[in-house]
Amino acid sequence: MFRNNGNLTSQLNRKLELWRNVPSSEMNELGQYPIVETLIKTVWGGIIPQTGQLLSGRAADTTLSRTTHKIKVRYDSSILPSDWFVYGGSRYDILYILDPYLNHERLEIFCEVVV
């Protein structure tokens, strides 16, 4: 599915929603601005399941052992580790974000599926 042919556009075949917790613009009855889940934007990306070999032999509950999927998107500095993606009714919590080769071309975002 993902070939190393340098054509990033062909790999970005899914429309993903990027969500974030943000303070509400309306004050509640306690005089506070509650935190609400907000759709930030939609982005094109590719979802790559990680293999069981990546998960085996790691200490329990480490970031790497919790990684279930890798999401590739075009470089976007506004994506935060506290954000999450939604695709097909599944939520993908971001564990960490990698900018391969630091060339600001694409991001590889390692995620954990929340059931």
Rank of each mutant, 00 (worst) to 15 (best):
G89Y: 02
F85C: 03
R74L: 05
G6I: 05
V73M: 01
F85P: 00
L55Q: 14
V73I: 03
R20D: 06
L8S: 08
Q32A: 14
P34A: 05
L30I: 04
W44I: 00
V86W: 06
E108Q: 13
N13D: 15
I71H: 10
E112T: 10
T62C: 07
V22A: 07
C111S: 07
G89I: 03
G46S: 12
R91C: 09
I47A: 06
R3N: 13
Q50G: 10
S56T: 13
Y101W: 03
Y101L: 02
S56I: 10
W19G: 04
T38F: 07
N7V: 07
G88K: 12
Y92M: 04
N103D: 10
Y75D: 02
I97S: 01
V43D: 08
V22K: 09
E112P: 01
T67S: 12
L16C: 13
Y75N: 00
V43H: 02
G88R: 13
A60H: 08
N28R: 07
L54T: 06
H69V: 07
D93Q: 13
T67L: 05
Y33G: 01
L102T: 02
T68L: 03
K15Q: 08
I94F: 11
P100L: 09
V22S: 09
P81V: 15
W19C: 04
T9C: 03
V22C: 01
T51E: 09
L64P: 00
L55M: 11
E105Y: 01
K15C: 09
P23A: 15
F110C: 03
R66W: 02
L102F: 11
H104I: 04
V113H: 07
N7S: 10
S77Q: 13
C111G: 02
R20I: 06
Q32N: 15
R58P: 01
N21S: 14
A60Q: 06
N28I: 08
V36S: 02
V36G: 01
L8R: 08
F85D: 00
I40V: 15
I79Q: 04
N21F: 15
T38E: 14
N13P: 00
T62L: 09
N7D: 14
E29K: 14
L55S: 15
W19S: 03
V115L: 14
Q50W: 11
T38H: 11
Y92N: 02
V73H: 00
T42G: 02
Y87V: 01
T63M: 14
S24W: 05
T42Q: 15
I97Y: 02
V86Q: 10
V113Y: 04
V115G: 11
F2L: 11
S77E: 12
S10W: 06
P100R: 13
P34N: 12
A60P: 00
Y96A: 07
D61A: 13
S56W: 08
M27G: 01
I48L: 11
L95I: 11
Q53T: 12
L54E: 08
S10A: 15
G88S: 14
D99Q: 11
G46E: 08
T67Q: 05
R3E: 14
R20E: 01
V115R: 14
G31L: 04
R74P: 00
T9I: 10
P81F: 14
